[in-house]
Each structure stands twice: as structure tokens, then as C-alpha cells.
Amino acid sequence: MMLKRIHHVAVICSNYEISKQFYTEVLGFKIVNEVYRKERDSYKLDLAVNGLYQIELFSFPNPPARPSFPEATGLRHLAFETECVETAAATLKEHGIQVEEIRIDPITGKKFTFFQDPDGLPLEIYEV
């Protein structure tokens, strides 16, 4: 099996309009495609992340809650590269997003920090 890279990451949100605003206006991802699926009462929003990867944002009526702490079993978090963690964190804070203290990766020496999407999904910004 020859897997080449991650194609997309799917996120299910509890409030489509709030999450759409967060991912497009706060994080700055570009809308590639938006579809309302009447039979599922569900939206599917495809988002481009710097033209390289894609996030699929789904809405479903009454999705079940999931543990979202970075140390919960399952997907730990979704991380995004940035040139400057301080600048990215400041931009998030300007939008009213709580950002954890910036830390240094003890293995790579790179700066990183965590924040959450509107549903509490742990997100990371990591300096390249």
C-alpha cells in the first residue's frame, strides 16, 4: 500500500454557522465547496488550508459529544504549521479565542500552543 499524504480531515460540528465562521473568518481557510444534503439535514463544507490539505466540516442534527482533551483516546489533536506562533496566537486572541501558554517542544526546540474550535476540538499551532 502506497499512502502518499493525508488527503483531508473531517470535523463534525454542533453549530454549523458558528463553526463555519470560526474556520473561515478566524482561521482564514478558503471555501472550496459547500453542499446542503437535504436527506441528512446536513451541511458539508470543504475548506482549503493554504491550498495543500482540506478540512471537511460536517453538520448533523444532534451529534453525540466526544471527549476532546488532547490526552483522550482517539485523535489527539489537529496541528497547523505557522511561521510565528506568537503572531498566530495574538490573532486568535484578537478574535476572543483562548490560547494556552506557548511552550517549547523539548525534542525539536520549536514553539507551539493549543486552542480549541467552537466544539472544544483541540487544535495546535506549531512553528516551522
Rank of each mutant, 00 (worst) to 15 (best):
17 E>A: 15
37 R>G: 13
88 A>G: 15
22 F>Q: 07
11 V>R: 03
116 Q>T: 14
7 H>G: 12
17 E>N: 14
14 S>I: 06
76 R>Y: 12
83 E>Q: 07
32 V>P: 08
82 T>C: 12
53 Y>Q: 09
124 E>S: 04
68 S>A: 13
58 F>G: 05
83 E>H: 08
65 A>M: 10
92 L>R: 00
64 P>A: 03
46 D>V: 07
28 G>T: 05
61 P>H: 02
85 V>F: 06
32 V>S: 14
10 A>W: 05
10 A>F: 04
46 D>H: 09
13 C>N: 06
57 L>P: 04
64 P>Q: 03
52 L>I: 13
123 L>C: 13
120 G>Y: 05
68 S>V: 10
20 K>T: 09
106 P>I: 10
107 I>H: 07
22 F>V: 06
40 R>F: 15
18 I>H: 11
31 I>S: 07
89 A>D: 04
105 D>F: 07
103 R>F: 15
75 L>M: 13
70 P>L: 05
59 S>W: 01
61 P>A: 02
69 F>M: 11
2 M>V: 14
17 E>C: 01
7 H>M: 07
97 I>K: 05
69 F>A: 12
33 N>Y: 11
24 T>E: 01
96 G>T: 07
81 E>P: 00
77 H>Q: 09
2 M>F: 12
58 F>N: 07
38 K>F: 13
87 T>W: 03
117 D>A: 10
113 T>I: 04
97 I>F: 07
52 L>M: 10
80 F>Q: 01
50 N>V: 13
72 A>K: 01
87 T>D: 15
24 T>D: 00
120 G>Q: 02
12 I>F: 12
17 E>T: 12
93 K>G: 10
4 K>M: 12
111 K>G: 08
106 P>K: 00
82 T>Q: 04
84 C>M: 12
83 E>V: 10
18 I>K: 09
47 L>H: 05
11 V>A: 06
16 Y>I: 04
126 Y>A: 02
60 F>R: 08
58 F>T: 02
42 S>P: 09
17 E>F: 01
107 I>T: 11
20 K>I: 02
52 L>W: 06
15 N>K: 00
56 E>T: 06
35 V>G: 10
116 Q>V: 13
17 E>D: 14
63 P>H: 02
115 F>D: 04
103 R>C: 15
58 F>L: 11
42 S>H: 03
53 Y>D: 13
73 T>R: 00
17 E>G: 06
32 V>A: 15
67 P>L: 08
34 E>P: 01
91 T>N: 08
44 K>S: 15
47 L>E: 06
59 S>C: 05
67 P>N: 09
126 Y>T: 00
49 V>C: 13
87 T>A: 14
81 E>C: 07
7 H>F: 11
48 A>I: 04
65 A>E: 09
21 Q>C: 10
95 H>F: 12
60 F>C: 07
80 F>D: 01
126 Y>V: 03
5 R>Y: 13
76 R>E: 14
7 H>R: 07
103 R>D: 14
109 G>D: 02
20 K>H: 07
83 E>W: 00
70 P>F: 11
18 I>R: 06
39 E>N: 08
56 E>M: 05
64 P>T: 01
77 H>A: 09
110 K>S: 15
65 A>V: 11
